[in-house]
Design a protein around this nucleic acid. Structure first.
Length: 285
DNA sequence: AAACAGGCCTAAA
DNA sequence: TTTAGGCCTGTT
């Protein structure tokens, strides 16, 4: 693993040679729900029970916290050891993909916590992003550990154990509707060992997909999102309504995601982001 | 007001 | 094997 170029600055660190790091694209390409944009363009969010502020300017990436945090958490979370410029080139197999990857330059796939990804994408079904975010924030505020940062209070994502101890009535305040029972049964499956999320990473994509789909209200789409965003299986290829549009418009004759292997999931994210941003400069709400 | 939102599940052909 | 409705809830 090559060394990162890190400068220590007041309140945090600056990475000087990351490349392909645009916070707006990373945090608003639809892969995560707990980062919010501040008026100055920086983002603040919570991951791995840490609060951080992230900002980028002229190729310099500021992350609040210590160099040790970068090593322990953020280097992995932001997938800093992957060369996204090279991947964009690899994925530019046709004119459309060349455009989509150029448009999405700066995007990165976050390596999120498996349980958080499973929860988030169970909650995402048949919902829009603002509401997904508000449900997840309510969930964290009700059942997550409080975290102090900058004189404000934030909340860690609720543990799977805590979640497994809850009832549907407990979840009423988060207004997750018909998704609540699925959230609880997923937590119980993880806690009682029926589903070993970490072990799935060692399995074949087919086996991992099948295991996830045994959960209540987890079908192909949610399972693929968990694999891609929570288990870091870069070949997983979620197809939601937006991706279905892309496939119909760009590949009416059909598309085998294997042509992007081993990065089909990253290809999917460039396509998704490009399609959702069509006609506007930034990600729509 | 009615339709819709980053699916899933079941019943019915 | 494919297809239509229904589902909690909030927003438009």
């Amino acid at each position: 693993m090559a060394d990162l170029n890190i400068e220590q600055v007041p309140g945090g660190v600056v990475l000087t040679d990351v490349g392909d790091f645009d916070p707006l694209k990373i945090f608003e390409c639809g892969q995560c729900f707990r980062w919010n944009r501040a008026p100055d363009g920086s983002y603040r969010g919570v991951a791995f029970s840490r609060v951080a502020t992230v900002r980028e300017e002229a190729g310099r990436v500021f992350i609040s916290g210590t160099p040790e945090d970068v090593d322990a958490i953020w280097r992995d979370y932001f997938d800093l050891d992957r060369d996204y410029a090279a991947i964009r080139q690899r994925l530019s197999v046709d004119a459309y993909m060349a455009e989509a990857t150029a448009f999405g330059a700066g995007l990165r796939l976050l390596r999120q916590e498996p349980w958080e990804a499973l929860c988030s994408f169970i909650l995402s079904q048949c919902n829009n992003i603002p509401r997904i975010k508000s449900i997840i924030e309510a969930f964290c505020k009700c059942f997550g550990e409080p975290l102090a940062h900058d004189g404000h209070r934030y909340y860690a994502f609720p543990t799977v154990e805590r979640t497994a101890s809850l009832t549907v009535e407990d979840l009423q305040p988060i207004r997750s509707g018909f998704r609540a029972p699925a959230l609880l049964s997923a937590a119980r499956a993880v806690v009682d060992g029926t589903l070993d999320l970490l072990a799935l990473q060692q399995q074949t994509p087919e086996a991992a997909l099948a295991a996830l789909k045994r959960l209540e209200r987890v079908g192909d789409k949610v399972a693929s999102c968990v694999m891609l965003f929570g288990l870091h299986m870069q070949d997983a290829f979620p197809v939601d309504t937006w991706m279905a549009k892309v496939l119909a418009e760009q590949y009416p004759q059909g598309l085998d995601p294997a042509i992007f292997s081993p990065y089909a999931g990253i290809a999917q994210q460039y396509m998704f982001y490009h399609r959702r941003c069509q006609g506007c400069g930034t990600a729509p709400r």
